[in-house]
Design a protein around this nucleic acid. Structure first.
Length: 495
RNA sequence: GGUUCCGUGGCCGAGCGGCUAGGCAGUGGUCUGCAAAACCAUCUACAGCGGUUCGAAUCCGCUCGGAACCUCCA
């Protein structure tokens, strides 16, 4: 490993050298989607950011257990633990079983992940699959005296927790400020304090998703699932917890409070990471603001802000050109530039594959430059997963590759070792770390038409050597040329 | 209102006190049947005003502008 990986830890507000609790094993938890509607590009950015974290850690040799949940119950519409469950509401609206809603949008989510080449997590647990554990944890928190039952619901007592621990540590909140700034909301009489949050909610008669519990029929609170599932699969203490910036407060703050209470005071997470928002015209992309882009609108260019479509890998490249902790503004011009940049990089990759090494007189200076450029791929990623830096280095290396290719630089001016290293590291960073891949946008049919036209012309010219050659070559590709009376057609070769 | 963050050249975007970030676009070359690609060179910067320092885009203060969170959100 070259250099040391540093991670910006939201908890400390500093970049820290990454030291796993139980190396080489690393436990990482990322808050997944609530599957009540299609994921938009803002959601995708977050998952992509952590995909790169997962990829890089794995490339460094860590054995990562990556847990990313699916929220399929408990996430309420509207303010302060009131209102309907998002899934239940959608189910009613569309006259579906709640689990049908969950399945539909989970499938959609998985599909988008695949399209953007975002790797599957090691475990993808669902909230509804862990009701029993959530009830247990609620009970444990009650036993610790930091929660209370009210009208069939169970609430976490934030003020009491804050007496011993620091509620607001992660998000930099001061509980007194929070109390004085809290809006008075309707229907909060169940809570002793507006800051308190639900561990378990009593289900009113209309509520579809419900489970029996010691406190009556109900459903788990949103924050609870992440505490429960991260603890179950990664232990009471684990290395990395990620999520979108907007989850920092209150979601992650509540998670810490719950996990810490349930474990008897252990700090659950060593490194908290938060991915920044995708913006449109400087404003956060979100469903509620109605400015969200769906991936398909982008691919097809059907969104009003776009004048053309962009491929998934263009978007991936576009997103990775910015550090995950900065906001990223979505614009047509920026995407256009990214498209060219992406192609340049992929051309570099293709060119690299065409190079063959031949011995020559080694230029020590060049040798050093190239090795430095290769090192800097690591330095970029080591610096809190700074993909922007790494991409800049990749472009510098691309320049070298092109020079070799054009013969402007003798390939033997570097040693075989360095050339092999270049070959290996370049591919590793482009494909494995950044997760970019070749996109085949070539239209098979038009290419084939081109060849068949050539075949036809050759035949007319009675150039039978060429005719035979084309036929043989296509046959090798499994394509059979059919000389019809009036035209030339093709079919799949059944041999 | 409270808390936090941001403001870099035509555009996007790194940068964490001294060392060419990078991409896109522009300009001038090399190459070339034409074109493209590629390579070389080159032009535009650090919101404003003060301060600290031998030295500041980078630290501090103020002003202006923008955003996020404080309520569901990745």
């Amino acid at each position: 490993m070259i250099g040391k990986l540093k991670i910006y830890n939201t908890l400390s507000g500093e970049k820290e050298v990454f030291e796993p609790l139980n190396g080489p094993h690393v436990g990482m938890y990322v808050c997944g989607p609530t599957v009540y509607s299609d994921v938009h590009l803002g959601n995708i950015r977050t998952f992509m950011s952590f995909d790169v974290v997962y990829r890089y850690l794995s490339q460094l040799g860590y054995k990562v257990r990556y847990v990313r949940n699916i929220t399929d119950v408990g996430h309420l519409v509207g303010d302060a633990d009131e209102g309907e469950d998002k899934i239940g509401r959608k189910a009613k609206l569309e006259n579906l079983e709640p689990m049908e809603v969950v399945q539909r949008y989970t499938n959609g989510f998985h599909n988008e992940m695949k399209v953007f080449n975002i790797l599957e997590p090691s475990i993808e647990p669902t909230a509804t699959g862990h009701i029993v554990e959530q009830i247990e944890t609620t009970q444990r928190i009650l036993d610790q005296g930091l929660a209370y039952v009210s009208n069939g619901s169970v609430y976490f007592d934030v003020e009491k927790y804050n007496n011993e621990h620091n509620y607001g540590k992660l998000s930099g909140r001061v509980i007194e400020d929070l109390i004085s700034n809290t809006r008075t909301l309707d229907g909060q009489d169940e809570k002793r304090n507006p800051l308190d949050f639900a561990l378990w909610k009593n289900a009113n008669p209309e509520h579809i998703m419900r489970w029996p519990s010691p406190w009556g029929e109900g459903f788990p609170g949103w924050h609870l699932e992440c505490s429960v599932m991260s603890t179950k699969y990664l232990g009471e203490q684990f290395d990395i917890h990620g999520g979108g910036m907007d989850l920092k407060f209150p979601h992650h703050e509540c998670e810490i409070a719950q996990s810490k209470t349930a474990s008897g005071g252990k700090e659950p997470v060593k490194y908290w990471m938060h991915a920044n928002m995708l913006t449109v015209n400087g404003q956060k992309m979100s469903k509620s603001l109605g400015n969200s882009f769906l991936p398909n609108e982008l691919f097809q260019g059907s969104h009003e802000l776009l004048d053309q479509g962009y491929s998934p890998m263009t978007v991936r490249f576009f997103m990775l050109q910015t550090h995950y902790s900065s906001t990223l503004d979505f614009s047509n011009d920026a995407l256009k530039a990214a498209e060219k940049g992406y192609k340049k990089l992929m051309n570099g990759l293709a060119t690299l594959n065409k190079l063959t090494y031949t011995e020559g007189e080694v230029d020590q200076k060049l040798e050093e430059i190239i090795n430095k450029q290769l090192d800097s791929l690591y330095f970029g990623m080591n610096d809190d997963f700074n993909t922007a830096k790494t991409i800049a280095s990749l472009f510098n290396i691309t320049k070298q590759i092109n020079k070799f290719y054009l013969g402007q630089q003798e390939i033997g001016a570097v040693s075989k070792d360095t050339f092999d290293r270049l070959n290996q590291e370049f591919k590793r960073f482009v494909l494995d770390v950044l997760g970019l891949q070749e996109e085949n946008t070539t239209d098979f049919n038009s290419l084939l038409t081109l060849i068949l036209d050539e075949y036809k012309v050759s035949k007319q010219e009675k150039n039978y050597d060429k005719v035979d050659a084309i036929r043989a070559a296509l046959k090798e590709q499994g394509i059979l040329i059919k000389d019809m009376k009036d035209r030339i057609d093709w079919g799949w070769d059944d041999q």
